[in-house]
Design a protein around this nucleic acid. Structure first.
Lengths: 225, 225
DNA sequence: GCGAGGATCAGGGGCGTCCCCGATGGTGGG
DNA sequence: CCCACCATCGGGGACGCCCCTGATCCTCGC
C-alpha cells in the first residue's frame, strides 16, 4: 500500500535471487526485471534446482527470492524449508494456479504467490511490495488463501466422502477426531458404547481409514475440528 | 495488481456499506471516500451495530463492506457470520493491530484488514483492490496472517515443554503422533515394544497428556508432524 | 406391504494402549 | 564411590479399540 520504512529497504535496490529450472524463463524474467525494474530491483543470482537455490540464498541473503513452485529436488517448499534466512522473503512465481500449490506454498512460508502470466511492471511492483512486508497474490489466487485460512476450503472435495456419512456418523466422527474415547462419545450423545462402535465402524469403512488415529489426522488436515 | 474483469465491477462505481459504531468516524470516512473516491466509490448506507449492519448488507448487497472489528452486538465477525451475501466482500477497518483481531477477522471471512491510520486515497485503493478479489493488508499486518497460516506461531512456547523430553523420547513421540502403533515404532527404532511403552509413559507424563490421541492433537496443533 | 437403509444395542474376541511392578547397564556429577 | 538420569527390557493387568455376527425398531419409497 504505502512504503513502510520499518519493513525493508526502499531506498536501496531490492536484491533478488531467481529460482527456476528453465534457463529460458530465467533469462526472460531477468530481462524484464532489468527493463521494468531498472533502479529498483537487482538480480544477484540464479538457481535451477533446490540445492543451487539453497546455496544461492545462503550466499547472497537477498531481500526477495523469486521461487518456482515445481522444481527438481523437492519443489519450492523444500527451498524455503532448508533456507535459514530471516531477512529474506519468498515470492512464489508459478505456472500453476491450483489451490493445493498455492496453499502448500503459503504454508511453507512464502509471502506471496503470482502466476507467470504476470507482466514485467506488475512483477516489479509485486517484488517491491513483498520486500516491504506486504502480501501479494494474483487476484484470482487471493480467494484460495483466505478461504483456506477461514477454514472453508476443500469442503467441496471433502463432501464427496463426507456426504456419504449420515448425520449421526458425522457427529460421532467429530467427537472421535477430537480425541474423545468411545465411552465419552456415548455419554455425550446419550447412546451406548456399542452404538458408537457401530457408527465408527461405518465411518472408517466409508472414509477408507483403518483406525481412529488416521481419522484424527484426516479430519485435522481438512480442518473439521 | 491489475484489473481483473472477472472478479468485480471496475467500470461502475464500487458500492460500499460502512459499519462503525462511532458516528463521527463514519462521517469522516464518508467524507474521505467522497473526496478521494469520487467517481470510484459510492457509500450506500451506514450501520452502527451488528443488527443494523446485517440488515444494511441484506438490503443493499454492496460490493464491499467496510467493517469495524469491535462493534456492539458481537463484533465484525458476527456481521459476517450472519450475512449471506455471496457477491459482497468484507474489508476490516479497525484501530486494532493485535494479531488475534486480525487473524480472527480473517478466519471469519474478511478479505482484507487495514488500520484506521490509513489515508483516504489508500483506503480507496484498498476498497478497489478488495472489490476486484485481491487481498489487502496493511504491510505490518500481512506478516501476522501469513505467519499464522504457515503455522510458525507459538513455536517458542512449545520448547519449554518439548525441551524436557530426552532425544529418544522425542523420536518416539514424533512417530506416535504420526499414527504409528507401538509395534511399528519398535521396529522403526530397533527397540522392543516395552521400551517404546516406557518412553511413551515418560512423554505423556512430561507433556501432561493422558493418551496418544491427545498427543496427536497436541503435536498437530503445534505442527510438529 | 416390503425391502432398503438408518439408528439403536448385545456378546465375544483379538489386539493395542497404558499402567503397575521390577530389572540391567551406561554415563556424568558431587 | 554413589546417586541421578537415561535407555533398555520383562511380566502382568485393566481397559480401549475395532471387528464380527446378529438383533430390533423406525422411516421412506416403490
Amino acid at each position: 500500500m504505502s512504503p513502510d520504512p520499518t519493513a525493508g529497504p526502499t531506498t536501496d535496490l531490492i536484491t533478488v535471487v531467481l529460482v527456476d529450472d528453465h534457463a529460458m524463463f530465467r533469462r526472460g524474467v531477468r530481462a524484464e526485471l532489468e527493463a521494468a525494474g531498472a533502479g529498483v530491483v537487482r538480480v544477484l543470482a540464479e538457481a535451477a534446482d533446490v540445492d543451487e537455490a539453497v546455496r544461492a540464498v545462503a550466499a547472497h541473503a537477498p531481500d526477495v527470492v523469486l521461487l518456482d513452485v515445481h522444481l527438481p529436488g523437492g519443489g519450492g517448499v523444500e527451498v524455503m524449508r532448508r533456507s535459514n534466512a530471516p531477512g529474506t522473503r519468498f515470492l512464489a512465481l508459478s505456472v500453476s494456479d491450483a489451490a493445493e500449490d498455492v496453499i502448500g506454498t503459503i504454508r511453507g512460508g512464502a509471502r506471496g504467490y503470482v502466476t507467470k502470466t504476470i507482466t514485467g511492471p506488475e512483477l516489479v511492483a509485486a517484488i517491491k511490495r513483498v520486500s516491504e512486508g506486504d502480501a501479494v497474490f494474483s487476484p484470482r489466487l487471493a480467494g484460495f488463501v483466505l478461504d483456506a485460512f477461514a477454514g472453508s476450503i476443500e469442503l467441496a472435495a471433502v463432501d464427496e466422502d463426507l456426504d456419504r456419512l449420515t448425520e449421526r456418523e458425522r457427529e460421532v466422527m467429530r467427537l472421535i477426531a477430537r480425541g474423545y474415547a468411545y465411552k465419552e462419545v456415548a455419554k455425550e450423545l446419550f447412546i451406548s458404547i456399542k452404538t458408537v462402535e457401530t457408527h465408527m465402524s461405518s465411518v472408517l469403512r466409508k472414509l477408507q481409514l483403518s483406525s481412529r488415529h488416521e481419522l484424527t489426522r484426516w479430519a485435522s488436515d481438512r480442518r473439521l475440528l
